[in-house]
């Protein structure tokens, strides 16, 4: 069964098409990369998957729930992390996690927070205000928030942006471990091609709101005759529209 089904998804703002007839499926338990340059439509697609934005046309089904009619049932079973959305700075890490444990109806809140603190090396930070943390620590707290409800679907918007290589690797390893243990499905939007190559079994390439190619990273690299996904990304981003597959 597919965790996410997107059919003919379109979003227009007046005459501007931000997402243009996009369709894809994410099999349960897979990690799929959503790639594209700035303005390609990644954030708009993720916002529609989260129910933050209403599509102009098309249909989204998440974990068997139609996002147009039953989005709250889906939202309770998924979560989201982005470095561009903050957690309240004055609240401690534990208070922030408690808020989201309540919002997601997490049972045995204290035990779950302790478990996540252990998993993400946050135990000594639980009483610190979120605003006093380093970028790496904030990212780990944001990840703890996104795992609080044991999500079956995790949407990650550049989860390792602005992190040092060590912390970035810690985050990637943790996500891989979580996916392996829980069977969670992950949709990853990232500009870090090495990260996408490492984590994703499949990649959807967006350009100007349209899907221009898709496939496993190795398959795309081979098809474009390149050495890595970054070169494939550049080929696609720089190619005239009519040359794109």
């Amino acid at each position: 069964m597919d965790a996410v089904v997107v059919e003919h998804l379109t979003k227009s703002y007046g005459p501007t098409l931000a997402v243009d007839d996009v369709s894809f499926r994410i099999p349960t338990g897979a990690t799929i990369g959503l790639l594209g340059g700035n303005g390609a439509g990644k954030t708009t697609t993720i916002a529609m998957l989260l129910g933050l934005l209403l599509p102009t046309a098309g249909r989204i089904q998440v974990l068997g729930h139609d996002m147009a009619t039953d989005r709250f049932a889906a939202l309770a079973r998924m979560n989201f992390s982005s470095p561009y959305i903050s957690l309240p700075h004055r609240l401690s890490v534990a208070e922030n996690l408690r808020v989201y444990a309540h919002l997601y109806g997490v049972p045995r809140t204290q035990a779950r927070i302790a478990e996540l603190a252990d998993l993400l090396d946050l135990t000594t930070l639980l009483d610190r205000p979120a605003g006093q943390l380093s970028a790496g620590q904030k990212t780990r707290v944001a990840l703890a928030k996104s795992l609080i409800n044991r999500p079956e679907l995790l949407l990650l918007d550049e989860p390792t942006a602005s992190l040092d290589p060590d912390t970035g690797d810690f985050v990637r390893s943790l996500l891989e471990r979580y996916r392996a243990q829980s069977g969670c499905t992950i949709l990853l939007a990232s500009h870090n091609m090495a990260e996408v190559e490492r984590m994703c079994s499949d990649v959807v390439m967006l350009r100007a709101g349209r899907i221009v190619d898709r496939g496993a990273p190795a398959e795309l690299i081979s098809r474009y005759g390149r050495e890595d996904l970054e070169q494939v990304f550049l080929d696609i981003a720089r190619a005239p529209t009519e040359h794109v597959v």
């Binding site: 989260l50 129910g51 933050l52 709250f72 939202l75 309770a76 979560n79 989201f80 982005s82 561009y84 959305i85 903050s86 957690l87 309240p88 700075h89 004055r90 989201y100 919002l103 997601y104 109806g105 928030k145």
Partner: peptide, 14 residues
Amino acid sequence: WSRNLGHVFVSPLR
């Protein structure tokens, strides 16, 4: 102000 609305609106809070 705390840029937290994005998290609130994607939670199951009606």
